[in-house]
């Protein structure tokens, strides 16, 4: 990995980490959902500190290029994250429906609609 690439990625990791932490600080992101991103950044950071680690792993697993391994890993991780998001959305849709129903029944009752 070239020096520019390494430092560039390092800067990106640090900035992304600051953004995430800032969102948590402002109560705009729940720690529960931020953890997976922070863990990802930590892994990226370790990979940057020890570049030979990636090369060693790629060789072990039979990748011709380190970048191929990184791309494959990135795609798998992103797939998992988006899939878990659709599960979270479904769960929230169920909660919202239940709340809508209960509030609507209560409100109609209070206003004497039924």
């Amino acid at each position: 990995m070239s020096k520019i690439l390494r430092y560039g990625t390092a800067i990106f990791v640090v900035i992304f980490a600051i953004i995430i932490l800032n969102y948590i600080r402002k109560n705009k992101l729940n720690l529960k959902y931020a953890l997976v991103w922070l863990a990802l950044l930590l892994i990226m950071f370790i990979a940057l500190l020890v570049p030979h680690l990636l090369e060693f792993l790629a060789k072990m697993l039979g990748f011709e290029l380190v970048s191929n391994m990184i791309f494959l890993c990135a795609i798998i991780v992103l797939l998992c994250i988006t899939f878990s998001l659709t599960i979270i959305i479904s769960r929230q849709a169920n909660s919202i429906r239940l709340l809508t129903q209960e509030i609507s029944i209560l409100k109609s009752h209070i206003r004497g609609d039924n």
Binding site: I96, T100, Q101, I103, S104, I105, K107, S108, D113, N114
Partner: peptide, 20 residues
């Protein structure tokens, strides 16, 4: 006699409100 759903839920959510 009626219940106004404060947000559109679609046929399933509406009918379920009736069952509730």
């Amino acid at each position: 006699p009626h219940i106004n759903l404060i947000k559109n839920l679609g046929i399933g959510g509406a009918v379920q409100t009736g069952y509730k």
